[in-house]
Amino acid sequence: MSKYSIDQFIQKSKQVDKGQGLFELETERILEINLDGEIWAKMGSMISYDGKIKFEREGILEHGLGRLVKKAFTGEGSQLMRATGNGKLYVADQGKKITILDLQGESIYINGNDLLAFEKGLEWDIKLMRKIAGMMAGGLFNVRLEGQGMVAFTSHYEPLTLMVHPGRPVFTDPNATVAWSGNLQPEFVTDIQLKTFFGRGSGESIQMKFSGSGFVVVQPYEEVVYAQGTQS
């Protein structure tokens, strides 16, 4: 059905409490945060809210000089805002699909541009990739989160999780790589033989190689994020 009366449209699209807790998927592409305290969210992701909520840009030295130095390399993709108060907060990012994880002491790396929101109590840090400036435009940094709490990340369309087993490394396109388990340390490799098919603007194919035991999440889309600066 493509035509609705106003009442039919409201019934079909109106907000409904699902009782899922702090983070709730209102739709596949809109995250409802039932705020009672404080959370961190991607700068510019707020689309609506009700109640008494205060928004603050992440302070320059709020998380220490080390993170400030790292952020100088990562551009705007890692900018966070703090939401404090009580009410319902709705966040989204360019219509991308949202996944919620409830970390139970585990750790996970999430591409900096795909991190949407996370609970205050989680430990987090920005991790820069190896020196590949000029080889690729996206995936320049990622965020490692660990502890007890909820985190939401985004992907273009449905994400696919690939299991990594000892002796059987998994290779991914950096621009299609969304997240991976916290125990994995990917390395960048090149394959000149594949330059005819991949390696846009680089002359050779840049791949992420995951070895060991864990998982990696990819999306069916090459997301090119233009970041300022170089890597360290």
Rank of each mutant, 00 (worst) to 15 (best):
G105Q: 11
H63S: 14
A152I: 01
Q231V: 14
E38H: 09
H156E: 12
E123H: 04
Q231A: 15
N113I: 05
T172D: 03
K52S: 07
I33H: 04
T74H: 13
D102W: 01
G87F: 05
G75A: 13
V91S: 03
G229C: 09
N113M: 00
Y157V: 01
A227L: 09
S232Q: 05
L89Y: 05
E187V: 07
S232N: 08
G44V: 01
L162R: 11
G212S: 14
S205R: 03
K97Q: 09
L31Y: 02
D93E: 02
M150D: 04
Q148N: 13
V225R: 08
L65S: 06
E204V: 08
Q20L: 10
G19L: 09
V143E: 05
Y4R: 10
L31W: 00
V225K: 05
M135K: 09
S181T: 07
K18F: 11
Y90G: 02
V16K: 06
F153L: 04
E222Q: 12
T74W: 03
S211N: 11
K88V: 01
E187M: 07
G44W: 06
F198A: 06
N111R: 14
V216H: 08
Y221I: 00
E222P: 00
I10S: 14
D50R: 07
L103Q: 11
R200Y: 03
V151D: 08
L162F: 10
K131T: 13
L68M: 04
F198H: 09
A117D: 01
S202G: 10
W124T: 02
I53K: 06
T196F: 07
M129W: 00
V216G: 07
I53A: 08
E26R: 02
S202L: 10
H63Y: 15
Q231N: 15
Q20R: 12
I192M: 14
V218A: 12
R67A: 15
R82I: 08
G59S: 11
F197A: 13
T230I: 02
Q231W: 11
G203R: 02
V69M: 06
T154M: 01
L116S: 00
D125F: 05
K131H: 08
F73V: 05
L22N: 03
K96C: 03
K54T: 13
I192L: 10
Y49E: 06
E119A: 13
T161L: 15
I33L: 05
S202V: 04
F118T: 05
N142V: 01
P169N: 15
T27E: 11
K70P: 08
W40V: 00
V69P: 03
R200A: 02
V170G: 08
Q79E: 04
E56G: 07
L65T: 05
G167A: 10
F188M: 10
I206N: 02
M46P: 00
K12A: 15
E158G: 06
S155G: 12
L22M: 02
K97A: 11
D125C: 08
S205I: 03
V216T: 05
G87Q: 11
F9E: 13
L128T: 02
G87C: 03
D7N: 14
L194F: 07
E119H: 15
D125W: 01
K131V: 09
R29E: 08
G167R: 06
E56A: 12
Q94F: 02
Y49G: 09
S48C: 03
E62P: 12
K120H: 13
S213V: 00
S155P: 07
W40T: 00
G44E: 05
I10E: 09
Y221C: 13
E146G: 08
K195S: 15
N183G: 09
K120A: 04
E146T: 02
Q104C: 10
